[in-house]
Design a protein around this nucleic acid. Structure first.
Length: 292
DNA sequence: TTCCAGGGGTAGA
DNA sequence: TCTACCCATGGA
């Protein structure tokens, strides 16, 4: 028994760009599919479902559908639809960003339809994953995330090797020792416990009336969250005012703009300052792997 | 061994 | 605001 939830998407819309804009789609409980992404999700009813999320074929997707592994009640189907709208950011308005891209031109002219970046169903999950990207390699981020999901997340009945993302309560129950000894997150363990303790506060950030600088200040109060993590989390909350300056940004801008010299954070920020509220995306669409 | 990865916390200037 | 140092882990 299975069921499909379908919803229409904004125009223009780049579905695969939405998924591949950053690394989230390869962090459990997401898994990359050839034409979309798979997600293990625990619904409010407690049911754990497997969703295969794909779009109508072609350049201009008009619909996204999630094929559930099991039948859903009406409230469960509505919850799946709302979750899709959240993780694909379908309700965000990018029109002023696209207008800016068209004005700037060049490679930015191809940005129309892009900008939506996959996020998690909960701010808590996004915050955990962002902390797991700090001061480590991408492979280790994937490993730490996988061990947390497999160790603490509720299992999918039809395939118990697959798990949904664990709830904050599971983090607290597992305790710091679990994260150090089993998940091997090292010194990040206390930060993850802190995020679990403040999960309710984190969720309120999704539709916060705070200004972006105010919200950034709140995020910076979280243990394990510094300038990079705060800027990344703001992006995941739909606020693109700040650049998440990490080793990759420094390396890219050094090569492209500073003749190999690593620019100061102020110099790097100045490169994208004209993008204003779209700064993060201004960089994201500038970035491209450089040869040599 | 040493370095460092999609940094952060702290102390001291 | 800036710099120096430490922080667990694991691959190069």
């Amino acid at each position: 028994m299975s069921q499909t939830v379908t919803l229409t998407v904004p125009h223009p819309y780049d579905f695969m760009g939405n998924l591949r804009g950053h690394g989230w789609l390869v962090l459990e409980p997401y898994r990359m599919l050839e034409e979309g992404v798979e997600r293990i999700l625990q619904l409010a009813s407690g049911k754990v479902v497997q969703l295969a999320i794909t779009a109508t074929p072609g350049e201009a997707a008009t619909e996204v559908e999630a094929a559930s592994s099991v039948a859903l009640t009406a409230p469960e189907a509505a919850e799946v639809e709302q979750t899709l709208r959240t993780i694909l950011r379908l309700d965000e308005d990018f029109s002023s960003f696209y207008a800016m891209c068209a004005k700037v031109g060049g490679s930015y002219a191809e940005a129309i339809g892009k900008g939506r970046l996959l996020c998690s169903p909960t701010v808590f999950e996004d915050a955990v994953k962002v902390v797991l990207t700090t001061n480590t390699t991408w492979n280790q981020t994937k490993g730490m995330t996988r061990r947390i999901v497999e160790g603490l997340g509720p299992a999918l009945p039809s395939d118990p090797t697959r798990h949904a993302f664990p709830k904050p309560a599971a983090f607290l129950e597992a305790g710091e020792a679990y994260f150090k000894e089993v998940a091997r997150v090292g010194y990040r363990a206390p930060a993850l416990i802190g995020l679990a303790e403040q999960a309710a506060t984190l969720e309120a950030f999704r539709n916060s009336s705070l200004t972006t600088p105010e919200l950034r200040k709140e995020l910076l109060r979280l243990r394990g969250v510094g300038p990079y993590a705060a800027a990344t989390l703001l992006m995941l909350l739909g606020r693109y005012d700040y650049l998440a300056i990490d080793s990759e940004v420094r390396a890219f801008t050094a090569k492209r703009y500073f003749s190999g010299r690593v620019g100061s954070d102020a110099e790097i920020r100045a490169l994208y300052a004209d993008w204003g509220p779209w700064t993060y995306l201004g960089y994201a669409l500038d970035w491209a792997p450089l040869d040599g």
